[in-house]
Computed example of a mutant assay.
Amino acid sequence: MARINFDLQELQAFVAVAERSSFRAAAEDLHLSQPALSRRIEKLETILGARLLDRTTRHVALTNVGRVFLEHARAALAELESAMLGVVDLAAQLSGLVSVACVPSAAYYFLPSVLKEFAARYPRIRVRVIDEGANFVLNAVTSGRADFGINFIGTQETEVEFRSIFKEDFVLAVRNDHALATRKSVTWEDLAGERFMTVHKDSGNRLLIDAALAKGGKRAQGAFEVSHVLTLLGMVEAGLGVAAVPQLALPLTTHPTLIGIPLMKPRVSRTLGLISRHGHTLSPAASVLYGMLRDAGKAARS
């Protein structure tokens, strides 16, 4: 068998360019000139006998071979880093980039509270948050663009491991000066005379609500339709109407304007979970953040 002779610097250079999708940004991260970085990538491609990156003056993208090799390269670097950190302080030395895909309703309040603690404990780890809809989050994880995700779909996907962390109900978001604000709970029938606002019918949250209301034979007619839950909250705060939103979309502490009222008959809920690819080993940095989010979900349930 021919000996593959490349060093750690070429591997690190490739991973940096792949994660940043930019030679310029990767060169800055590694404190190299762009020509020096290009030489390392070219040497690695020559040794492997395959092109790993397609690049133009404005764009850098992984080839099919590059996407496969990236996963192995990350795993190799993670194993080496983990071994080296065995005798030193992990919190002080752990570094790298973690990409997390997250549905916006969880990204607004739940995720930042964990990231604040994470950044304080692991200041050398960079985090990239991909805050998009449920289907986009699922695709980002299965395609490898995200290390893992926070989502409420994925339980039926054979290539995805779904770990439940939090079950939440949908609540009615209203202004604190609204006529319903003093109620301990409301039913969907109570919304008949309200200006009800909702997300688009292609939204995963809308599908959950429509399915639940179809079973109960009750439907709330939407006066406004938007793409994102956070837009709904802004419209509620502006006094344009009321909206059904996941509990985590509302502030974790008292808000000066918004409150959430339990919605009953029917009660609509969703299960939020951490999703990752089956058989994929997370890097040490990603594994730490995954564990903190898992623990935060447990705390939110209690």
Rank of each mutant, 00 (worst) to 15 (best):
240 L>K: 12
226 V>C: 09
257 T>A: 13
228 H>S: 10
233 L>D: 04
258 L>H: 06
231 T>N: 10
254 T>P: 00
254 T>H: 10
245 V>E: 08
239 G>W: 11
244 A>N: 07
238 A>D: 12
258 L>D: 03
238 A>Y: 07
232 L>Q: 05
229 V>A: 08
255 H>M: 05
256 P>K: 08
250 L>G: 02
240 L>A: 11
258 L>S: 04
242 V>P: 01
248 L>W: 05
228 H>I: 09
239 G>Q: 06
245 V>D: 08
245 V>G: 06
232 L>I: 05
230 L>Y: 14
238 A>T: 01
234 G>C: 02
252 L>F: 15
249 A>I: 01
256 P>L: 05
245 V>A: 06
248 L>P: 00
247 Q>A: 11
235 M>P: 07
239 G>Y: 11
256 P>E: 09
246 P>Y: 05
251 P>K: 04
243 A>D: 07
251 P>Q: 07
251 P>S: 10
241 G>V: 06
256 P>Y: 10
246 P>I: 00
248 L>Q: 12
251 P>M: 02
227 S>P: 11
249 A>T: 06
249 A>D: 04
238 A>M: 11
229 V>Q: 04
235 M>V: 01
255 H>C: 10
234 G>A: 08
246 P>D: 06
251 P>R: 05
236 V>R: 00
246 P>H: 04
254 T>F: 12
254 T>A: 15
244 A>L: 07
227 S>F: 12
225 E>F: 01
244 A>E: 09
239 G>I: 09
248 L>K: 08
240 L>M: 12
246 P>G: 05
226 V>W: 08
238 A>S: 14
242 V>M: 04
250 L>V: 04
232 L>G: 01
234 G>S: 11
236 V>N: 00
247 Q>C: 05
254 T>E: 14
247 Q>W: 06
254 T>I: 15
242 V>N: 03
229 V>R: 00
244 A>M: 06
230 L>H: 14
247 Q>K: 12
229 V>Y: 00
254 T>K: 12
233 L>H: 06
249 A>R: 02
235 M>K: 10
248 L>G: 08
244 A>Y: 09
258 L>C: 08
227 S>N: 13
251 P>H: 11
227 S>I: 15
242 V>E: 02
254 T>Y: 09
233 L>V: 09
254 T>R: 15
256 P>T: 11
244 A>C: 12
230 L>T: 12
234 G>T: 07
232 L>D: 05
258 L>M: 07
244 A>S: 13
229 V>L: 01
230 L>F: 13
255 H>K: 10
251 P>T: 04
240 L>R: 13
230 L>Q: 14
228 H>Y: 15
232 L>H: 01
258 L>N: 00
247 Q>H: 13
257 T>G: 04
256 P>N: 10
247 Q>Y: 10
236 V>D: 03
234 G>D: 11
252 L>S: 15
247 Q>G: 06
238 A>K: 12
239 G>V: 12
239 G>T: 11
233 L>M: 12
245 V>P: 01
229 V>M: 07
228 H>W: 15
249 A>H: 03
254 T>G: 08
243 A>W: 04
225 E>V: 13
238 A>C: 11
252 L>T: 15
225 E>M: 11
255 H>Y: 10
225 E>S: 14
239 G>S: 08
226 V>G: 06
246 P>S: 03
231 T>Q: 14
254 T>L: 13
237 E>H: 06
240 L>C: 08
242 V>K: 00
236 V>F: 08
243 A>C: 03
244 A>H: 07
